[in-house]
Design a protein around this nucleic acid. Structure first.
Lengths: 367, 367
DNA sequence: TTGTAAGCGTTATCAC
DNA sequence: GTGATAACGCTTACAA
């Protein structure tokens, strides 16, 4: 861990100036003999270029930040999985921020762009306040926002379309003959909670079904909340025949309670989740879920950012990722055939079912 | 996105020297009047300290890197979830590297410590070659290795104990009366694959059961591989009554195939996974799994690193995290009672079942 | 208490 | 082609 050599050290050793060292190291036209001497010295000394000094001079850090509400949320992880490889391929490092869904922290991250430790930021804020927009306008580096921002905000923006997503789910349930479709939502003061609630009401109306307050239950976005909400729902309206859940965790809680209550899924009650996380495919019955394209949104965001890092002057763009209904056993009653071929070695259709690699590196112990 | 002000800008504006500005900004003793002028100017200009310039001078970046084989792997994500908050609380940012399990990439990460863009590194290498150790010895910043390294390697080290873990699982299966226990392993040239294979043989011996080559099947660490392996196993040895799977994904594939084959779990075949990922609790039947303490290992690693960043001179430490068998329905036959209280709002026992928060920030669309 | 100036390790602009 | 030398924005002796 000795103090590393600098271009000065190399210059001395090679008997040339630091300017020549820099030139060689950067591939600028130099005499062969000089190149040889410099490279030899660098090699012997184990020289590694100091990224900090270089950044100070070049005003580029080759780092990009991703700020999410919560690193434990599978939705954001799906985004990180897309973002990281693209950044890596483009020569950037990924810096991760978890803001714990605290608005002040999010604004802090935006503000800290002034520290210039990253070249750009991808952010997925829980809500977008006036203060967010203000800070955003003054941001000292390019920003891409994942999530809705007010029309006219001059920023690259990637959106899901949970309204259409809810609509897809309700159409599906309606086509299956379900008529008493309950909604298990998250808090209404979050952007997703609000829009999913509105979309539910709207979809019911278009289907010609009455909106019934008794069919709506609100909790937080966790599995336990989903379980509690569904228990309350069942007590109040024993005749419900379908559950629209605002995310997959809520839906898993719903499955737990339905099983405990002896209700068959989907015969008695059909269940739809949202986000199509890896848990949806793993549960039993496997969970029909509305994919809001987390992976695609992550991909779109990083591409917008890289593009802007190259040409900072273009107009802001808006990308909307369409939702997709992934039908599984919790509504269809049919477990999919094994999603892989048991005889060959082709990874086959499993790509979607397996949550990434699992080359498992942890190791241990006594030998 | 205008070019930001520097301490020079402030100095001019406030009519003082840059040294005074720096002093005020760093809380060093200064006259009240000067403080006032400087802070006022800084405020007006929207000054933010340049982290790069500061790092060049201070030789600290307040960044720490975590290098894992694969960002899609739930095991590493469990670590990241622990590491990030601790680092944040200590004032560090987290830089993420995914090495795709390529040894050259891992060595590259070690080497790049010389760039000094981070103050330290936590790394979980897939295998530890001679080249790793060599580069490690020359590393220009503190490193913590998650995973076994040869005895005597002078580095902070956190290990799992998969040997004991396998032993726990086989004891459990044996106690349940199972006697034809197959092993579905990953590649033998990976550290985990090798040690789990050895541990299996060893545990059988101690239980007085014969080792039978026909009961061992090897594939990769993915769900599809697990499915294929188990299909082959069933064809060859229709009478197996238990499956020890080298990780949870393999176990999920096993469950798929057993269900398709009409074998009851656990009545006909008991199944044990490994790593105790969130998928284990979500599957049905829920999966008995050996936890190797990914979260604990992440926590231990970051604590070792922070400690060393404060006192770089202490002796290297070794932390071994004990495994724990988490019994669920795939061996016990009993789905756990609902892991949460349906009547109150206490998060209760769900903490372990819910994969972190899900405050769901993605949002969308037309509304 | 404050200002001048050196230096962190680069890159880049000059003359030579 | 190459070598002084001046930035980049900050911290910190050292002087005043």
């Amino acid at each position: 861990m000795a103090d590393g050599p600098t271009i000065n050290t190399i210059a001395e050793r090679a008997g040339v100036s630091i300017a020549s060292v820099s030139r060689v190291l950067n591939g600028l036209p130099t005499r062969q003999e000089t190149i040889r001497k410099v490279l030899a010295a660098a090699e012997e000394l184990g020289y590694v270029r100091n990224a900090v000094a270089r950044s100070l001079k070049s005003r580029r850090t080759n780092q990009v930040a991703f700020a999410m509400a919560d690193i434990g949320n599978p939705v954001y992880l799906a985004m990180v999985r897309q973002i990281q490889p693209v950044l890596k391929a483009a020569g950037y490092r990924l810096v991760l921020h978890s803001t714990d869904a605290i608005a002040a922290d999010e604004i802090d991250v935006l503000h800290s762009l002034g520290e210039r430790y990253v070249d750009g930021l991808i952010m997925s804020p829980l809500r977008v306040t006036e203060a967010h927009l203000e800070t955003l306008k003054a941001a000292r580096a390019p920003v891409v926002i994942i999530g809705s921002v007010p029309d006219g905000t001059r920023v690259d923006n990637v959106r899901a379309d949970s309204r259409t997503g809810v609509r897809l789910a309700l159409d599906h349930l309606h086509a299956l003959g379900r008529r008493r479709i309950a909604l298990v939502n998250g808090p209404l003061d979050t952007v997703p909670g609000a829009s999913r609630g509105a979309a539910y009401a709207e979809a019911l109306e278009e289907l010609g079904l009455p909106y019934d307050d008794g069919l709506v239950e609100i909790g937080d976005f966790y599995r336990a909340d989903g379980a509690r909400a569904v228990a309350a729902l069942l007590a109040r309206r024993p005749d419900i025949d379908a559950l629209m859940c605002a995310n997959d965790l809520i839906a898993l809680g719903a499955l737990d309670v339905l099983r405990a209550a002896g209700r068959r899924v989907p015969e008695d009650v059909a269940v739809v989740g949202m986000d199509d996380t890896e848990l949806a495919a793993a549960s039993y019955p496997s969970l029909t879920s509305v994919s809001l394209g987390s992976a695609e949104r992550g991909k779109a965001a990083v591409e917008l950012l890289l593009d802007r890092l190259q040409r900072g002057d273009r107009e802001p763009r808006l990308v909307t990722v369409p939702p997709r209904l992934v039908v599984r056993a919790s509504t269809s009653g049919e477990e999919p055939a094994l999603p892989y071929d048991l005889t060959t070695n082709t990874p086959g259709a499993l790509a979607g079912a397996a949550p990434g690699h699992q080359s498992s590196a942890q190791e241990g112990g006594a030998g």
